[in-house]
């Protein structure tokens, strides 16, 4: 739900402020790739209505966000591709594909794609965090959006702890990816929490 909330928060921000200054479209592109790699089973496997519905929502909303930021005025007029410049193609996609192949539980396309999507998701926030570091001042809604993006994976970790003790569920790849992903947020969370605590605007060093 936190992940869904982060997407809805971003949609609301774009619609309300008609600006995507401070928002990384490259991060959304990474998430679109994550979802396409991971949700291929939409075509051949049914787990539950909830599972299918959320997959469709995540894929469609992420592509809609990219469309808004890249091609739909007035939002796209505020998008600066030179500022949002993290070269994720070689820095993130390459390693995720290699790691996905090496660490896949079995060498089948769905499993390799699933594993690569876990590694890619764990670092997909980097373009967004790097863009914020360049801008330093973080607008309120953006701060909330990034905070929910960091929080959702932390709640997966809590669920994984529960599932490990309740049903012996083991998911090494997901666990490692989740720890890396949450770890990348820790310093942002610190500055976010401080700005909330002291009621000041969020400014990154």
């Amino acid at each position: 739900m936190l992940h869904l909330m982060s997407i809805l928060l971003l949609l609301w921000k774009l619609k309300k402020s008609k600006s995507c200054v401070g928002i990384s479209c490259r991060m959304q592109e990474c998430y679109a790739i994550v979802f396409c790699l991971r949700y291929l089973d939409l075509f051949y496997q049914f787990i539950s209505v909830y599972n299918t519905a959320m997959k469709v929502v995540f894929i469609s909303s992420t592509f809609y966000l990219i469309f808004l930021m890249r091609f739909q005025p007035p939002v796209s007029a505020t998008y600066d591709r030179t500022a949002d410049s993290f070269p994720y193609e070689q820095y993130l996609l390459g390693p995720a594909a290699v790691l996905g192949f090496i660490s896949a539980e079995e060498w089948s396309i769905p499993e390799i794609f699933w594993t690569a999507s876990i590694w890619l998701e764990s670092v997909s926030i980097l373009p967004q965090l790097i863009l914020l570091q360049q801008l330093r001042e973080v607008e309120n809604l953006t701060a909330e959006f990034v905070a929910t993006m960091g929080a959702y994976r932390f709640f997966y970790i809590l669920n994984w702890i529960y599932r490990y003790f309740a049903e012996g569920y083991v998911n090494w790849i997901g666990w490692l990816g989740g720890i890396v992903q949450t770890g990348l947020y820790v310093d942002f969370f610190y500055y976010y929490a401080m700005s909330k605590w002291y009621g000041q605007k969020l400014v990154l060093p």
């Binding site: 992940h3 599972n51 995540f58 539980e105 079995e106 089948s108 769905p110 499993e111 699933w114």
Partner: peptide
């Protein structure tokens, strides 16, 4: 886990 890894999470 049975056969191919069953991924029931989003």
């Amino acid at each position: 886990d049975e056969g191919g890894a069953e991924h029931d999470e989003l």
